Amino acid sequence: MDTNVVIVGAGPAGLAVGACLKRAGVDFIILEKASELAPAWRRHYRRLHLHTVKSFSSLPFLPFPKSNPRYVPREKWSPISMPMPRVSAWSRASASR
């Protein structure tokens, strides 16, 4: 793939930037060192809940379902549990200078 935009990391910020770039029609690639999306989020303790209400915590263009509680628990935030738009991502990738 030939692109001028590289997003390093498929965490919440990288996924949000990717969603916005895709909506704007900009080609990009996301590089993620781990083999899954948002790897750090999965290592947090089980009882973790977002500390902001769901209307401010969703990824761009992917609002939480109305059935989710006001403060979303970790297992309902995970990108694996949400329908993700198709993006170009390479897992187990690394970047160096």
Rank of each mutant, 00 (worst) to 15 (best):
Y71R: 04
R92T: 05
L50C: 08
A34L: 13
W90I: 09
G18N: 06
R46E: 04
E32S: 12
R23D: 15
L31V: 12
S91T: 05
P85Q: 11
A34M: 15
W77H: 04
L21T: 01
M1Y: 06
Y45N: 13
T3D: 05
P69A: 08
M1N: 12
N4A: 11
A16E: 04
P60D: 10
A34R: 13
Y71P: 08
K54F: 04
M82E: 02
V8Y: 12
S57C: 02
V72E: 01
G11S: 13
F56T: 12
I29F: 04
I29M: 09
V5N: 05
L62A: 14
S67I: 07
S88C: 00
Y71M: 11
A93T: 04
A10D: 14
M82H: 00
P39E: 05
A24F: 11
G9S: 03
A16F: 10
F56M: 15
R74P: 00
G14L: 07
D2H: 09
I30P: 03
S81W: 03
K22E: 13
N68V: 00
R86G: 06
F61T: 04
K22A: 13
S58A: 14
L21A: 03
S55R: 14
P73L: 08
S88I: 00
G25F: 10
D27L: 09
S94P: 02
I80Q: 04
A38Y: 12
R23I: 10
P60K: 15
D2V: 02
P60Y: 11
V8F: 14
S67L: 06
I30T: 11
P12E: 07
L21D: 03
W90F: 08
H44S: 06
A40D: 15
P85E: 08
L50Q: 02
T3F: 07
L37R: 02
S91R: 09
K66P: 10
L50N: 10
W90M: 07
S94T: 08
K22D: 13
R86E: 14
T3A: 10
K33H: 07
I80G: 05
H49A: 05
K33W: 05
G18S: 10
R46A: 13
L31W: 07
P73T: 04
R97P: 08
L15F: 12
A16S: 15
L48Y: 03
A10Y: 09
P39Y: 06
N68F: 07
P73R: 02
F28N: 05
F28C: 05
R46Q: 06
L48N: 01
A13L: 07
A89S: 11
H49R: 04
S55A: 15
